[in-house]
Design a protein around this nucleic acid. Structure first.
Lengths: 134, 134
DNA sequence: TTCATTGCAAAAGTTTTGCACGTGC
DNA sequence: GCACGTGCAAAACTTTTGCAATGAA
């Protein structure tokens, strides 16, 4: 996504396209490694040593609220973020602690037919192919 | 579940059956409302005013580690706990903030065939039948 | 008796708040 | 120019740690 496209996206959500917002969104979309607040903060410090943690919290919270990014709560320790908002699952390996994306083809549920579903999050955990051999 | 059964369950997991553990587990299984640390603490205070928050953290963490309870991370603010460890989904209503349980009949995924899956968590959000009318 | 577990107090870590200043529109 | 957003420092809140005392097995 180009900087101009990101700007347009923010403006269509009535957000000002500040350099900080653009940089954070760009970082998330170019690093689909599901980083947490601290990783985003450390990256932003490199760009501008005056960056404040408050800004990271503000930006991530507002982007999540507006549905532009996902908050991934698969980890007990920290919330991770993902700029890919298409429906997909997350697998956490207990060996290497990495998060893997996977496709969700179909889900069949009972008991929420009359509910209005807005978001669907799916978290699996276990061992990835490499770690299960050990 | 009777107190004796809970005791046996703890012992079979090499946990000592302390009154605190039993009371916390009993509270969770009798109150399937997905309470958080603070709610468990407030309940325990009524039973014994000397209860420490540390104990709540210790007990919930160890029970979760051993798979005797589930940690539900559907809420941004707090982790909730559930003594029902059978596979089921959780729906969070953005209107009344309640958590509803639902059945998962089938999930079809692509990309993790070679993974060894130990846990499956599914979180939906949106509006419950009552709240969607407003 | 022994050692896991508890409760307390303090420390560490995380997130929010209040406010002055700066900047996108 | 105006309102939104940022950065800073402090406050608030959450969770962990170290340790002495307790009590389950």
């Amino acid at each position: 996504m180009t900087e101009t496209q990101i700007q347009k996206m923010f403006r269509s959500h009535s957000y000002r396209a500040t350099p900080q917002r653009i940089a954070i969104y760009k970082y998330l979309s170019e690093h689909p490694t599901h980083p947490d607040v601290e990783e985003v903060y450390q990256f932003m410090l490199k760009e501008n040593p005056n960056t404040s943690r408050t800004t990271i919290y503000n930006v991530l919270k507002s982007l999540e609220k507006e549905g532009l990014i996902l908050a991934i709560k698969i980890d007990n320790e920290r919330i991770r973020y993902d700029a890919d908002t298409k429906l997909h699952g997350h697998f956490r390996c207990n060996g290497c602690n990495k998060i893997f994306d996977f496709l969700i083809d179909d889900i069949k549920c009972t008991g929420i037919d009359d509910f209005e579903t807005k978001t669907k999050d799916m978290y699996f955990s276990g061992f990835c192919p490499k770690c299960k051999q050990k």
